[in-house]
Write a protein that binds this DNA or RNA. Structure first.
Length: 457
RNA sequence: UCCCCGGUAGCUCAACCGGUAGUAGCGGGUGGCUGUUAACCACUAGGUUGCAGGUUCGAGUCCUGCCCGGGGAGCCA
């Protein structure tokens, strides 16, 4: 039985069964005037029952607004409001009222769209700490419901904006986006770090890295990039590991080691400036300050692998030459810098086969890792690639891949009009974790895939 | 893969040297309160202690195996 309010409103705007919203809660604050009749489609964020008044915090994707239901107006509506479970979705009609310097809604009509009891605890839209270590298991188990949490939403909006800014940057710089396959025969690393599946009777893998395909595309387009997930079945439990992570990869033709370093520095400092300016709301919710002037001070300092080992030695950490730097090593090193910094020239022994050997010291590769500040670890890696067939073949022999038929086409790229090129790869979640100071990369992605955790939801 | 730690109410946790599970907080239910904002106050319900064995008169507690999680190492982006 529609009330007068309901019918009058529906005649105004909503004369159909399925309603697409034309304004959101944020618009009520920004654009609507006191006295205006509004309709809110959203959720009950929280509720406070008083004797003759109920306070509802109504939320939608854009924010929260307080709504009041007085017993005096209509006792049915009042009772309905009293019994609403937090998180229930509702349609509310009401009048915009002044509340000190802000606004609230005086409710005239409430329709329950979907009841949310029994309750989800803690309530996703309440202000509990979604990153509380005690709640890790619960939040991940109920991740599908906790996406409604304000702080998680802020992280995911930040992520969305960050990726948009990267795409803008690539576009500005004349790159084209290449959609590389996710199903592939080519592993970058060892077989025990691959997720395999059945491709019409043939064993293939989820990609670990799309660089092979970008290296084909770079020979045509000269500047190419790709953003998609990479998969690593590494049995890793650290704060920086996801079995499925979003990977930004780019290749540039006729660029060498120094070019790719300068290029990525420009990109990172651009992205930091833009994201800070464009995510003010999210940063405020997350109580994070991105120190732009400090973090964008390029060029970033460079130390060589040998220098890194010496610094570690000075800090009483003896590292055998030729081993890769651990998270802890890299974290100790970061104490000496207030910006990100490069570690250049990783030993050939520990690097993958496509990366160029340093002609001035053949034990080293033309690679570098960009290390974040404050112990947040490696952000990205750059490499000059091997572009000559013989050199590549020699490296593949070294890694036992030279007779592997699957790499034949990759070798062919070095045979038919090959060109020098360099590239970089970055895990998006690691960048987000650093910028937002998150405890774990799992909170930088909506549905994390983690070693020793069921992929559910 | 290795090393630590944990699994008790819907959630977070208590429970001494092994003695038969808590008036705990949050959440639920009932009642009260027109200005609260994670409202508050009173009362109340709620448990095959992860699973399977074992030791014991007796196991949440000790032992073995398994399952499920968390932290760290190694390895990577």
């Amino acid at each position: 039985m529609p009330s007068q309010w309901s019918t009058s409103l529906r005649n105004l705007a909503w004369n159909k069964e399925f309603i697409m919203k034309s304004y959101y809660i944020k618009d009520i604050f920004d654009k609507m005037e006191v006295g205006q009749i509004v309709e809110i489609l959203g959720w009950v964020a929280s509720k406070r029952n008083m004797g003759k008044i109920v306070f509802l915090d109504l939320a939608d994707s854009t924010g929260k607004i307080q709504a009041t239901v007085s017993k005096g107006i209509d006792s049915n509506i009042f009772l309905k409001a009293r019994e609403l479970a937090p998180e229930s979705s509702v349609r509310v009609e009401g009048v915009v009222k002044k509340l000190r310097k802000s606004k609230e809604i005086e409710v005239k009509v409430i329709e329950l769209i979907c009841d949310a009891s029994p309750h989800v605890v803690p309530q996703p839209r309440s202000s509990f700490d979604i990153f509380d270590k005690k709640l890790v298991d619960l939040i991940l188990t109920k991740r599908h419901l906790y996406l409604r949490n304000e702080r998680l939403m802020a992280v995911l909006k930040f992520r969305h904006k960050l990726i948009e800014i990267f795409r803008e940057w690539f576009r500005k710089e004349g790159f084209i986006e290449i959609h590389a396959p996710i199903l592939t025969q080519l592993p970058l690393y060892d077989d025990d770090t691959l997720f395999s599946l059945d491709f019409f009777g043939e064993r293939i893998f989820l990609t670990q890295c799309v660089a092979f395909y970008l290296e084909s595309a770079v020979c045509a387009f000269e500047k190419v990039y790709n953003i998609n997930p990479s998969f690593r079945a590494e049995k890793s439990r650290g704060k920086r590991y996801l079995a499925e992570f979003w990977h930004i990869k780019a290749e540039i033709a006729f660029a060498d080691f120094n070019d790719i370093i300068a290029f990525t520095e420009g990109m990172i400092s651009y992205v930091i400036r833009r994201i800070r300016a464009e995510s003010k709301d999210e940063l405020k919710i997350l109580k994070v300050d991105i120190e732009e002037s400090r973090l964008t001070k390029t060029p970033y300092p460079r130390i060589t692998y040998d220098e890194a080992l010496n610094s570690l030695k000075a800090m009483n950490t003896i590292k055998e030459w030729g081993k890769s730097l651990s998270d802890m090593d890299v974290s100790s090193l970061s104490k000496a810098f207030d910006t990100p910094f490069w570690v250049t020239g990783n030993p050939r022994r520990i690097e993958a086969f496509p990366y160029k050997i340093d002609p001035s010291n053949t034990q080293l590769t033309k690679t570098a890792d960009l290390i974040a500040t404050e112990g947040f670890g490696e952000l990205l890696g750059v490499a000059e690639k091997i572009w000559q067939r013989n050199e590549l073949l020699e490296r593949m022999k070294e890694k036992g891949k030279d007779s592997d038929e699957r790499y034949r086409w990759y070798l062919e790229l070095r045979q038919f009009g090959s060109i020098p090129h360099s590239g970089f790869g970055m895990g998006i979640e690691r960048l987000i974790r650093w910028l937002l100071r998150l405890g774990h990369v799992r909170d930088a992605i909506p549905f994390p895939r983690l070693f020793r955790r069921h992929p559910n939801p």
